[in-house]
Nucleic acid binder design. Sequence first.
DNA 1: CGTGATGATGACCACGTTTGCATACTCGGC
DNA 2: GCCGAGTATGCAAACGTGGTCATCATCACG
Lengths: 337, 337
Amino acid sequence: MAVSARDVARVAGVSVSTVSRALSRPDDLAPETLAKVLETARMLGYRPNPAARGLITGRTGTIGLIVPDLENPFFSSVTKGVQARARAAGYGVVIADSDEDPSQEADLVREMSRQVDGVVMCSPRSPDDVLAALATETTLVLVNRRCGSLPAVLIDNLEGVRLALEHLRALGHRTIAYVGGPATSWSNRARLTAARAIVAEHPDTELVDLGSFQPYVSGGIAAGDLLIASGASAALAYNDLVAFGLLDRLKQRGVQVPDDISVVGVDNIPMSALSSPALTSVGIPLVNCGRAGADVLVSLLRHPDQPPTHHHDLSFQLVVRDSTAPRRSSESLRDTA
Amino acid sequence: MAVSARDVARVAGVSVSTVSRALSRPDDLAPETLAKVLETARMLGYRPNPAARGLITGRTGTIGLIVPDLENPFFSSVTKGVQARARAAGYGVVIADSDEDPSQEADLVREMSRQVDGVVMCSPRSPDDVLAALATETTLVLVNRRCGSLPAVLIDNLEGVRLALEHLRALGHRTIAYVGGPATSWSNRARLTAARAIVAEHPDTELVDLGSFQPYVSGGIAAGDLLIASGASAALAYNDLVAFGLLDRLKQRGVQVPDDISVVGVDNIPMSALSSPALTSVGIPLVNCGRAGADVLVSLLRHPDQPPTHHHDLSFQLVVRDSTAPRRSSESLRDTA
DNA sequence: CGTGATGATGACCACGTTTGCATACTCGGC
DNA sequence: GCCGAGTATGCAAACGTGGTCATCATCACG
């Protein structure tokens, strides 16, 4: 069916080895032989069979990507970055969605481990020891998750949370709620820890931990009433989706954002500019995050001897929109009550 | 390195053929032999090499998916559906993003054609003849695009547009604008044609075609001023993102939605419930759309002899939210002017 | 007890490519 | 003019699996 190297060899009047060399090591061939082979290959539409190549080289030319939820804009963007960069480097991308289920992640890696040269795991929910075990079975790069000295693309959560909290403090807020994501989420724990550390620097400021919620809009809706009851004048949400849920529930309860309560999200997804009110958010260029992940993995595959530990930090930036405002003075609060 | 069938054979004291048969045709083996082989395979952690298998069978156990933009929530959802269903059927998914560039689509298909058993193309922008040519090179299934008798998962655009327009007509709107998507988009043309046909049924109603815009929020922002100038009291947007752009620009210009102008989107993406005002939209369960695409492709691969033409229609449903309202009477319009 | 049928299993080739090694050929220097 | 060095190319093995065919054992039946 498909045209093989043998066909090219026959037509060009050379051996199969020469055809192979024409593509893998052109310098080893006489210029006129090279030209002849390349020309007939082009004419016949020859395309090397990746399975046969992979069988002998052990490389597949493909990398894997595992994300918790493809529908989440955060992971969509990362996926786009990984895909673009991998393709530019000549790699294909096979994708898998763990549906936010930590126990699936390891299975997915093992399922695809024979078909890929390495795997990028984005925001994995699995515990450290599971990830460490996976790293011994395949070349693994983490995105948005630190685990020992495994190669990782990290986001400086401390800096991001600091940007958000200092913004709120500058607006006069002194009681700030944290609306958390999944308890198994590494970035959630990192952000909570960061928030505690930053608040600890300011004796006049208090952090109220409202607990863990689903990383979706529904999670924010569920947390809305707790936020109102907490007495906090501002909230930092685990991510923008949760923040949207908060906005929705607060509006429903008749609580004004930002007049009564300020809300800050994390991720700065494209939709943040369009909510009502438009969401103040700290975020990073997510596509870059994916790009960096693919780059690290590819360079690891190309130079297996290089030090396996490689951390790459990306910076947050604060985008102020309409969901944050100066804290109302107590009097004006009493006015509306 | 990795444990091969030969290793299992040696340990189990059987031949390589027997190991192969244990997995591919268990019925041909004596029960005790089967048990022994399976047990040692499990013990040794044997996993067949997909490259070697693919080399001989010609099948890869992988399907391809090509979408115009991974960051677009529409395609994210479809991707999720395709991925979930493919994996359930034992197939991996390699993904590629054409960046809305029609000329890239064919290249992408050809690039991956040797590594996959078939390809799902979602909303391809390429012309019919290009798609027909691709279908001769690989097993192709289209989603949200009709092209001759190629197998496709289709959305009944006529019905969807009818739902939207009849909703607006029922609210009293008689001059309705259509804010189009890319000119190369098949679904855009289908929707415009559908809108014209439906309006033609009602002599008292007029359709204003505002032209083609980018299928992003920016496209809607660009179209906003044209909409205001058009004199239409309602607009149907190519998709929800464009509708968001419209909402944004209209708000900026001081035009009230839905009081002055009603807006309807298409796709009903999750974010539609959260915009301000919440967007009335006609949509289909997008994840199902992806699922259907994967199902059609898998069944085509499993039963190559079945009639290759297979159309699968999915229905729209109208979700009414806050961006549509009865048309203001001329007097009240004059009042505000 | 012999013969044919049935069923289980092993030996071997093929798939398409890469790669080490052998070989033939070229060219420069003495 | 011959030899060594270097270079271009062919040969053949190997990667791990699936499938075909032959072989051998077992068993039923005549």
